[in-house]
Nucleic acid binder design. Structure first.
Lengths: 341, 341
DNA sequence: CTGTTAGCGCTTTCAA
DNA sequence: TTGAAAGCGCTAACAG
């Protein structure tokens, strides 16, 4: 049975009013040192913790920021989450990590829940399926979008992402410079801004060698955005069974790359002898994979830090900030997954 | 600026009392269908969400369970977390995932915070350094320990873990059956129950071939429990530079294995030609590593589900349950990392 | 510097 | 079945 020690008990024990106790807890107005010590003693003696529900009810803030992501097991999000936490902790905010599992319904339920919890802000890696609602609540609640844009004229908030176009452009250009011409792409669902942009970067690079990449491009495989691992596997399967196989493939994220690698390994397709590959984004434990894909990397903690700063600012300015967009540029980290042809 | 729609606004709009609105929200007592509809309409029109701080203040529960883990980027914890969530969602509880980063101080701060937030229960993968405090609060607050024991007579709560002893025993026995005698172990900090037990399982298996394994055992490397990846690397380095090298090594978790593999690969030590290895616990993307370690595996979602059930029961029974201990047995999944000698 | 008090938004008796 | 009203634990005027 929870016996709740309240501010009253402390006041009683210290023989002061509850207002005084409140003052020593919040350290803003000055209290007689001697009395303050008495209160402090009472607090530790009674093992008192202020009830944050009561506090929130009064102050209208919870000092809690939510980070709602599409896959809580993804190294990217958890690492970015650590970066966010580092910053917001300094301002005495806490992070609540939630998983929408790429589900429109779960995202909806969470948004509702987070509104009830009256979190002070939401950092959102959205499913891309609740744009209307998100735009609506963004008027009142600070929102920072992580990696996926909300396409709605009324949306208010910040957006942070990689520079997807230039990242993929460089990866693809690298393949081109090695002599590749028949280059495949395994991509995620293009209703998501990330994947749309990555596709664009690919098309832009291919255009430099006169290849038109559009929806009919034969070497294009599109996943549905739910299980990118399986999409990667299926995409590799599709591309490597074409009449005329590609000599190189661009994967637009690490999960896709994992799935594709699984396919290649299972089917004894050698990298880079049979096909060269490159992949967008950091890969955990890349050094001990059977092949080291050439990738783009970015400072993930740095992304998290930046997100944290944007959010804190937005909260402190009462959401009265025009929409901002931050792009992190990527660097190529060469592995052993490509060859000259 | 947040304009907060409250129960009062809804009552006004629907032309009923706030008590009636409360009744339709909580769906327990009966309300005239017509009035109910009026209230429902007002709720959706005003886009009203009940304030959970106010609700908590009144009901003394938050319908929130915290999962405080030592590394939020660890696949094990996030997957178990999903399993927990699946169960508790059914009972209308939410999960709050927090990271103590293996730090005694951060753990302390979180425990304090979670008390303030008045979470309904804490699922804890403890640092092992705050046993006294945890035992103290466990009297009032439901606690389920995930993978790390709290050694204190006053602790009340449940404990769930692998059957560490038999898991390592079997892995080690496998090496023995292949003819290995000089077998090394790379282990985590033994003030943690998990690693203590795994060491015990190892010693037990070695005893069957007459080898006494104690603290002076030459082929034993102990990490500090903070960065198991680096410990894995250092441990491999230590063992492979001994006068008389081991022919096989047992790693007691996957992070240790990753670090060791990194060492082996960097130093051109071949697996299993130069040394055989086995590792405790599931490994993500094992299929595409440069070698597939023989491991133990377990149904991680199942562990999460069980933790969720234990917690829900404990909450509903007001923490009036004697301490329970659940052990998940592991299965060996053979890779290509061992050889006969 | 300290105490009294109103009220945050909700649930839940108690009366009607 | 519905409404009035008390009170959850806290903060912040306001008064002294």
């Amino acid at each position: 049975m929870k016996k709740n020690v309240t501010i009253k008990d402390v006041a009683l024990a210290a023989n002061v009013s509850i207002a005084t106790v409140s003052r020593v807890i919040n350290q803003n107005s000055s209290v007689n040192p001697e009395i303050k010590q008495r209160v402090l003693d009472a607090i530790s003696m009674l093992n008192y913790y202020p009830n944050s529900a009561a506090r929130s009810l009064k102050t209208h803030n919870t000092r809690t920021i939510a980070y709602l992501v599409s896959n809580i097991s993804d190294y990217f999000f958890t690492t970015v989450g650590k970066g966010i936490e580092d910053v917001i902790k300094k301002y005495d905010y806490n992070l609540m990590l939630c998983n929408n599992a790429n589900s429109e319904e779960v995202e909806l339920a969470y948004i509702k829940l987070l509104q009830e919890k009256k979190v002070d802000g939401i950092i959102l890696n959205t499913t891309g399926k609740n744009n209307e609602l998100i735009a609506e609540i963004s008027k009142d609640l600070p929102i920072v979008l992580s990696n996926r844009q909300v396409n709605h004229p009324d949306f208010r908030g910040d957006f942070i992402d990689f520079d997807n176009i230039s990242g993929i452009y460089e990866l693809t250009s690298h393949l081109i410079s090695l002599g590749h011409r028949k280059i495949g792409i395994i991509n995620g669902a293009i209703y998501l801004s990330t994947f749309r942009e990555r596709f664009e970067g690919f098309a832009k690079a291919m255009k430099t060698i006169g290849v038109i990449v559009d929806n009919d491009y034969i070497y294009n495989y599109n996943g549905d955005g739910f299980s990118t691992f399986i999409d990667g596997y299926d995409g590799a399967n599709y591309l490597m069974n074409l009449e005329e196989k590609p000599t190189a493939i661009v994967m637009t994220n690490s999960e896709l790359a994992f799935g594709a690698l699984k396919y290649f390994k299972s089917n004894n397709i050698r990298i880079p002898e049979d096909v060269s590959i490159v992949s967008f984004g950091d890969i955990v434990n890349r050094d001990i994979l059977y092949v080291q894909p050439t990738i783009t990397y970015t400072n993930l903690m740095g992304i998290g830090n930046k997100i944290g700063e944007l959010m804190i600012e937005r909260i402190e300015k009462n959401n009265q900030i025009i929409n901002r967009e931050i792009r992190f540029t990527t660097q190529i980290d060469y592995g052993n997954s490509t060859r000259k042809i």
